[in-house]
Design a protein around this nucleic acid. Structure first.
Length: 311
DNA sequence: AAGAGTAGCAACCGCAGCCAG
DNA sequence: GCTGGCTGCGGTTGCTACTCT
């Protein structure tokens, strides 16, 4: 007993969209907003499946879509995120403003997968001109943000995650506004942020602290216990010099322990503890990595994590 | 110049999750 | 708890442009 098809395929157009169809769809969405994709063909008079309308809008017609080649920064970020998240293109795309999951998926399949496998030819790649399949986009205004990352305000009390050491953790407030743009050209870090972080540490005993200065992006520390280890120690490039015998299984102990009620659930974690530790240690301690980490950590720790991104 | 092979991208397809009834 | 509709996601396909021989 199968499901009904999303729409009848009889009498529907397929293949490349025409400029007229694009206009109809764009006008409709401008008037009525997104959603109710199934109704759009009927209401707007388009001979297209609702799914097709949604895809066309999301991947092409949306005004905030960024055009042009994937920059080296973006490519680097894609590689890192893919390493961390796998083929979860929508998640990856969410970290790249203006890029769609389809675009990133295509780019990965045609370019990066080879690189990732180390099979990339040593010969310089011949740059091809872009194909002219699609007409000029309706709105070339690039929403490319300044890429400024507002530094995290850490106001969370200790996030203790030891398997046998579960302590209370306040509800998180997570304004995911700018962390996604961690690939941008610059960072912004002001004194107020620093002050907030410092206060947080001193007044409530929080050990989750993010600090930064104007120059050294990697100069931050963030503590919450993972088993017997604080993350700040792991983030420290000199971690192995700190007198720890780093046991990679410490991470596994954390993410594989579901016996707590602190909101953490390994089934929700996009990566195992081992992946986390391996990937994290392989990353540069730049802010892009930090942004990536926080995003992942948010999923991982759920309500245990309290991060505020100043707008 | 022309045909074959390859690469890039838009679009399609089917499945799964979510949610309302 | 079950069912069905809607939406989103990831894999795949097919078309077009480009390169090579």
């Amino acid at each position: 007993m199968g499901r009904n098809p999303c729409c009848s395929k009889e009498g529907l157009n397929r293949g490349a969209w025409t400029a007229l169809e694009d206009k109809i769809l764009t006008d409709y969405i401008k008037t009525h907003g997104e959603g109710k994709w199934r109704n759009i063909p009927k209401v707007a008079g388009l001979k297209r499946c609702g799914k097709s309308c949604r895809l066309r809008w999301l991947n092409y017609l949306r005004p905030d879509i960024k055009r042009g080649n994937i920059s080296l920064d973006e490519e680097d970020l894609i590689i890192r995120l893919h390493k961390l998240l796998g083929n979860r293109w929508s998640l990856i795309a969410g970290r790249l403003p203006g890029r769609t999951d389809n675009e990133i998926k295509n780019y990965w399949n045609t370019n990066l997968s080879k690189k990732a496998q180390g099979k990339e030819s040593s010969q310089p790649k011949i740059e091809r001109k872009p194909m002219m399949i699609r007409p000029p986009p309706p709105d070339e205004t690039s929403p490319e943000s300044s890429g400024v990352v507002k530094v995290v305000k850490a106001n969370a009390p200790r996030c203790t995650s030891g398997a046998n050491n579960v302590t209370t953790t306040p509800k998180a407030e997570y304004n995911d506004t700018n962390v996604a743009t961690g690939h941008g050209p610059s960072m912004e870090c002001d004194n107020s942020v620093k002050n907030v972080a410092a206060e947080s540490e001193s007044s409530d005993g929080s050990s989750m602290l993010v600090t930064c200065n104007d120059q050294i992006l990697s100069d931050f520390s963030m503590d919450f216990n993972v088993g017997e280890i604080c993350l700040s120690e792991i983030l420290d490039p000199d971690f192995t010099n700190l007198g720890h015998d780093f046991d990679i299984n410490e991470f596994d102990n954390v993410t594989e322990n579901d016996g707590t009620n602190n909101g953490r659930n390994s089934e929700l974690s996009p990566f195992s503890g081992r992946e986390l530790s391996e990937n994290w240690r392989g990353m540069d301690s730049d802010f892009r990595s930090l942004a990536t980490f926080f995003e992942s950590a948010d999923q991982w720790l759920g309500d245990d994590l309290d991060i505020v991104y100043p707008s």
